[in-house]
Computed example of a mutant assay.
Amino acid sequence: MTALPAPDPQVADGTGVAPSGPHPRTATPDWLALRAGADDRARSSRLAARLSERLPEAGALTLHDLGSGTGAMVRWLAPQLPGPQEWVLHDGDPGILLHADLAGVRDRDGRPIAVDTRIGPLGALEPDAFAGASALTASALLDVLTRADAERIVAACVAAGMPALFSLTVVGSVVLAPPTPFDAELAAAFDDHQRRDGRLGPDAVPFISELFAAAGWNVQTDDTPWRLGHEDEPLIAEWLDGWLDAAVEQRPELADAARARRDSGVLCVIVGHEDVLAWP
């Protein structure tokens, strides 16, 4: 996702990772902070609990987080898991990790977590990158990956034999209120924009689920939509700008429709996401 205002439409769902495909982009700390509350409300506590059940019952945990950004996934998930915990943060943008504030994060038993960082694009991810790890996590990542990126991540998970929780992947469902006649066409253009440069976009959840299933793994998903209302007006405004800009970049003939959509205003929005848990 370059600079605000208006999140980069290529990565309008937000991640700090640099994928291996062309034109990698990164999120900004401001955008990640703006969306943090909506993200935490949406994430699947049910799948987080099931992840916890599949962790080793004794000893320290080592958890890898891909596309960590400012550490939002760690801040949300670590207090739900036993410890001691060591988190390894992976990101393609070394600058954004400087904004990761995890000093006050505690595990479920009240112990502080340990944190390490690794910088690099997913194209450099080695097959044994997660050797010895207890689990893998990622947030708002899968839809900006290429197929090769996803295959590389799944192969490394299977090699490590540890569960993986992927949070907040967009699925191509958007509901705006009040509606306009242009919404469906704008949404389709945005989805096509997400698929540019070979990225998975709204096809990410079924694609990665099929990869894990083909490896003989179990897969569960959970609907985790953003439900944004009056209290989320700043987030709605930034998200809408990025959504419309991407749609018009994909189909310039929709410029008038995008202008009409902006003029109509948005009181609330539902942005569809899914969380995915996979385990051997």
Rank of each mutant, 00 (worst) to 15 (best):
I96V: 12
R108C: 07
V105D: 04
A6S: 08
N218E: 13
L77M: 05
D191G: 07
A215S: 13
P181I: 06
V219I: 06
L4T: 04
R41S: 08
W226V: 00
E253S: 15
D91V: 03
D263A: 15
A246E: 06
L267Q: 13
A129G: 09
L89D: 11
L4R: 05
D13T: 02
R118P: 01
D183E: 06
V88E: 08
R195S: 08
L34R: 11
V248Q: 06
W76N: 02
L61W: 04
L211D: 02
G272V: 08
T15G: 15
R195P: 01
R262Y: 00
F166P: 07
R54Q: 11
L122M: 11
R152S: 13
G71I: 00
C157F: 03
T169Q: 10
P7M: 09
Q10M: 11
L32A: 04
A135I: 03
H273K: 09
A255S: 14
V276W: 02
R46T: 14
V11Q: 12
G198W: 03
V105K: 02
G92Y: 00
R75T: 09
V174I: 15
P252K: 11
T28A: 14
E151M: 12
H64C: 10
G69K: 08
L102E: 06
G120S: 09
W76T: 11
L34G: 11
A103F: 00
D116C: 10
H230L: 12
A12N: 14
N218L: 09
A58L: 11
P252A: 05
L32C: 06
A150I: 02
H273I: 01
P121C: 06
S52E: 13
G67K: 08
L63N: 01
D93T: 03
